[in-house]
Each structure stands twice: as structure tokens, then as C-alpha cells.
Design a protein around this nucleic acid. Structure first.
Lengths: 336, 336
DNA sequence: GTGAAAGCGCTAACAA
DNA sequence: TTGTTAGCGCTTTCAC
């Protein structure tokens, strides 16, 4: 191991000078800086992470807690994780991967050991038991997703309420009068993040504002359940011409089923999805959709964490406005 | 922060005794152990990670380098990452997430800073530039995937050669005489891991051993390219009744195309996939497949890393034998 | 603009 | 079975 002392000797300066060259916490003469830097790359010096953490009380590590398995679409989780990791490097931070199944114990362990400077939590539940633990510790934290009570917390999420409304607007603008929201599975509504409920709220409010007939149905996402949900909707409301799908797993079944029932998309029936762009693009027809801004959420979470580390705690809730992209699955309602 | 000194005071022992209770590196009287443990949870003590790393020269961190974007199916990467993280906790290790785009610099940084005790690298290329760097450092490392030269390295991967052969055997046993392997995209063969080439080798060797007519075609995985590949195969070898698909992206297009061309699966044509079980199960019909043992590879990589840390360096190449599961997409060739 | 030196909290000899 | 103590490599006062 190359130590700071060796670099100092090689450069003919004291260890503290090397430290200051690295931290830029005091001014160094041009000449000294050059010699130190030369010594650093000549020796291939990297500061010892543990020693630095001990002395400075900063580990330069961000802990990211991800769901082991969740209702979230796996590629979205991955995209967030990669965005967090990439953005963290911009701040000279590394990322420690924790699984949500470590639960509150994991949060205590990280906070207590000084292993990480801050935490980013994914898959936040409405009444998440990690939150009280977070409140006890003074470790900066950012939640991706909204709990029921956000007081004192820093959170980022897609604005699902506005997302529901935006989908309704799009269909209403196209002339649709009867629409349906195919939502997540029952379990998601019961346990989870509330994003599903928020979508539904926005959907219903905007539908009523624009005078549309709207139904909302939960859906497990299997072929069979999607078939059942679709059948019930069309039975109750045979005039339904617009569908909004929140459950990615239900997208492919829904498209097949509509085709089978002789409804052409988008000629007879329009479909709007709430899903990652990737999914919207690989469907056939390509879907009009509100995308899940995974990368943006990840980057934002890191920036929030860093600003807490540097500037202190300023709780904030950031709701990213939905971006609806019109593709091939939605069109004006046929003049009947 | 609770320190070991506070715990020691509370328990009426010396700091080193607390340390030894934690590390179990020497025997402690039952009574002392109890008092120390009581003090530990009373105070909520967690050893400071940096201090421990500095003093013991062990960070208790495993670095995992994952591809930012790759030809690998994203859920497989995720499953490996989760398996690594979960298994690492069994050894009291945490996982640091690095992206492959940090390249050799990332490897040097981790090795040089003592941030991690060992590294696990995914998405290993045939002539991976991280390998020489790994050889310079003494940091234990495990590769998931096989480079061209494995001398002195520890690697884990699915035995793709045997996989190709197993798929051929399955189709041959069912009476198929003309078969085709729809492989990965050209880029994968050129740049990459060699897993595609190894599959092909096993496929061709076994086909020749069993006297089958066999063709292999690369495929980009889009609908259009799959259509082109299929058309060419059927033109050259109209008698082809068995397909092996290695490119997950090509699976859905292939099934649709076969249906469109009036070939029923499995009545007229059999399809065997090399893909995660999840993909095989959600296709319709469910696919006979060799699964990608993501979890097993992740767990194995961690165990190898730990055994290097504890017992020294014993290079080894572990090829996981393929497991072919018969589902609904393969059947005996029709008596013509 | 630079250096000397006192810790940071822990581990692991060495001593008893 | 337990305690004392010397570092681990770095940051950061304090001093010049």
C-alpha cells in the first residue's frame, strides 16, 4: 500500500501538504502542487478509504437500499441504481448496495457504523417502518417514493396524481367519453407506495372535471386476470374507448385481448400506458405513454443527499411532472 | 457516535475485551460476554467501519462491477446483484456497486484505496482490459463470465458449450433432424464474453456427433432482423423443425413469426430457449429452456471471493452445468 | 505557503 | 481469562 507519507517523501513535502493538495482546503504554490501530483501518479497513490473516513468523519459512500423483489418493474430499479451510481461518482462518492429486506436493522447498522454518509431508499411504503429509524438518526436520507407523512423528509417521485390527470386529458382531447384505468394489483394498493392510489385520484378528479365516464379496476397483471378485468369493464361500460394502463405486466395481455375482441388499436380503442419508455417502444403498436423518469429520480436523489451533506437538512418533496409522449396507440375516437 | 470505549466502560471491561467479544478471536468468560453484549445493545453500538478497516486492514466490503448497459438481459444482472448482496451479508460483508464504465481506473481505485476486500466483475469480455490490472494488484477477484485466458483467475459461468450440446440432444431425442441456432447479435460475438461462441461450438459439435443438419445464424433481436433470419433459414433448410434461441429479445418475435407462417409450436416446430426461467414461463407457449443460473452464479462468486480472502488464492474455473427444463414448446417431430 | 503533531476508533500484539 | 498499548493512514488544528 502506498501511503501519504511515501508520497510526501517523494515530493519532498510534509504529509499534511499532500493532504491539502488533495482536499484543496488551503492554497498551495504551483510548484509544490506539481511535485505532489507527480509523486501521486508516479506511485499510483490512492488515499486509504478507512483512514480517511476515520479522520474526516466522512466515508464518501452513499447507501442505496433497493427492494429485493417488488411490484416495481425490475429494469426501472436497475436504471435508478445505475443513475445513482453514476451521479454519485460526480461527487466523488461510491454507492453501497443494501437490500430492503435488511429493514430497520440495516438502516441502524449503516447510520451507527458511519459506513455511509447518507442513505437513499427505494420502494418506500406509505407507512414505512424505516422512516422512524431514519428520524432518530441524523444520517441524511432521501426517499424515492412518497410515504403517507412526509414531514421533515426529503422525497422524490413522479407526480402520479398529475400523471393520472394527464392521461385523462389526452384521451378527452381525442374525444373519448368513456375511459377506464387498469391499475396495479390489490397488494400494491394495500401495502404499498401509494403511487397507485395517487394515479387513481388524479384520474378520477380530472375525469369528473372533464365530464367523462370513468372506471378504475385493479389488475394482477396475468393474462387471465387482465382478461377478467377487461371483460367486466366492457360488460359494464360497452362504450369504453380509452384505456389507461398502470400495470406494465398487463400491457401485453391487454393488447392481445383487444385484438382478439376485434377492437383495433388505435382505430377503435386508444391505450395510454404509464411505463418506462423502453416498454412503450417495444410494444406493437408503440404506446402513447407517460414515462417513469427513473434516471432523473436517481440523479435527483443523489443531488439532494449531497446538498443535505453540505448545506444541512432542508426537507423537500419533489414531484416530477409527467411527460406524456404520443405514439401509435392513441387516436381520435371514431365518429360513430 | 457510540464508541468501543463507552461500551467498555458500561460493561466494566477494557476496550480490547469488547473487541474480542465481537471478533470471537479469543475466549471470553460467559459472564463477561453477557455484560458486554448487554452494553452493546443498551447503547446501540456499531463498530465504526472506517476505524475497523484501518486497524484490521479489512473493509468488509466486496466491490461488484456491473455493466451500465449490456447485451445481457437486465433482470439477469439484477438477479446476480441481489444474490451477491444477500450472500455477502452471510459473511458480514457489504457490497459496493461500481459501473463497468469506470473501467481499469475503477479497479485501480478500489484496489489502491482498500475500499473493498475483493472484487466481483460482471460482463467480462474475452480480452478484458481490467484483467491485467487485476493481475498487478493482489486484490482477490472473481469473474462472472470467461475471458479468453483464464490462467490464474477465478471465474464462474454457465457452461455454455454444454448448454448448446444439451439443446441439440433434446431436439435430437425428439427426432428432429434439421435444427437451427438463432444466436446473439454480431456485436456480441465480436466484442464480447465468448458465451455466444461457446454455445455455438457445443451446438455444432453435438449436432455433428448425432448426425443432425445444423445451421447457426446471428440475430440482432429486433422483429425485423428475426424475420430476416428466420426467412433465410427456412429458405436454405425448409426441413428445419427445431430452433434453439439464445437471444432473449428474439424469442417473442420468433414465436409470432412461426405462428404467422402457419407453423404450430410445438406440433410442427420445436423451440428451445436459453434464457432466464422467468422469460420461459411468461412466453406462450411456455418454453422448454436452459435457464441462466443468475442466483447461483452470484452466490458462488461471493463464496469464491471469501475463500480467497480466507484461504489464499486458488485459481479456479467453475462452469455450472446446464439444466434443461422441458415445457410446452418442444415435442416429437411429426411423423411425416 | 508549509510543517509538526494530536487524534479519529479500532485491532492485535504483548503482558499479566 | 483479561488489560495495556502501539499503531493503522489520514485530517486538521496550531504554529511558524
Amino acid at each position: 500500500m502506498v501511503t501519504i507519507a511515501e508520497v510526501a517523501r517523494q515530493a519532498g513535502v510534509s504529509p499534511s501538504t499532500v493532504s491539502y493538495v488533495l482536499s484543496r482546503k488551503r492554497s498551495i504554490s504551483e510548484d509544490t502542487r506539481r511535485r505532489v501530483e507527480a509523486a501521486i501518479d508516479a506511485l499510483g497513490y490512492h488515499p486509504h478509504a478507512g483512514a480517511r473516513a476515520l479522520a474526516s468523519n466522512r466515508s464518501n459512500i452513499l447507501a442505496l437500499m433497493v427492494p429485493l423483489r417488488s411490484d416495481m418493474y425490475v429494469p426501472v430499479i436497475m436504471e435508478i441504481a445505475m443513475a445513482v451510481t453514476t451521479e454519485a461518482r460526480e461527487f466523488d462518492q461510491d454507492v453501497l448496495l443494501l437490500t430492503k429486506d435488511e429493514g430497520t436493522g440495516g438502516v441502524r447498522r449503516i447510520a451507527g457504523s458511519g459506513l455511509a454518509d447518507a442513505m437513499i431508499l427505494m420502494d418506500v411504503e406509505l407507512d414505512d417502518d424505516r422512516i422512524p429509524v431514519l428520524r432518530e438518526t441524523s444520517t441524511p436520507a432521501v426517499l424515492i417514493g412518497l410515504p403517507a407523512d412526509t414531514a421533515g423528509l426529503t422525497c422524490v417521485d413522479l407526480d402520479f396524481d398529475a400523471t393520472g390527470a394527464a392521461c385523462v386529458d389526452h384521451l378527452a382531447d381525442l374525444g373519448h367519453r368513456e375511459i377506464a384505468l387498469i391499475g396495479e394489483s390489490e397488494g400494491v394498493y394495500r401495502r404499498h407506495t401509494g403511487f397507485a392510489a395517487r394515479t387513481m385520484t388524479g384520474f378520477q378528479r380530472r375525469a369528473s372535471e372533464r365530464g367523462l365516464r370513468a372506471v378504475h379496476r385493479m389488475c394482477e397483471g396475468t393474462y387471465e386476470s387482465t382478461a377478467g378485468v377487461l371483460a367486466r369493464i366492457l360488460e359494464e361500460r360497452p362504450g369504453t374507448t380509452g384505456f389507461i394502463v398502470q400495470n406494465e405486466a398487463a400491457i401485453t395481455p391487454l393488447l392481445s385481448l383487444l385484438r382478439l375482441s376485434g377492437r383495433a388499436v388505435p382505430e377503435d380503442t386508444s391505450v395510454v400506458a404509464i411505463c418506462p419508455d423502453q416498454v412503450a417502444l417495444q410494444s406493437s403498436p408503440r404506446l402513447t405513454s407517460v414515462s417513469i423518469p427513473a434516471e432523473e429520480m436517481g440523479r435527483h436523489a443523489v443531488r439532494q443527499a449531497m446538498s443535505q451533506l453540505e448545506g444541512g437538512h432542508h426537507p423537500s418533496v419533489t414531484l416530477i411532472p409527467p411527460l406524456l409522449t404520443v405514439r401509435e396507440s392513441s387516436a381520435a375516437v371514431p365518429a360513430s
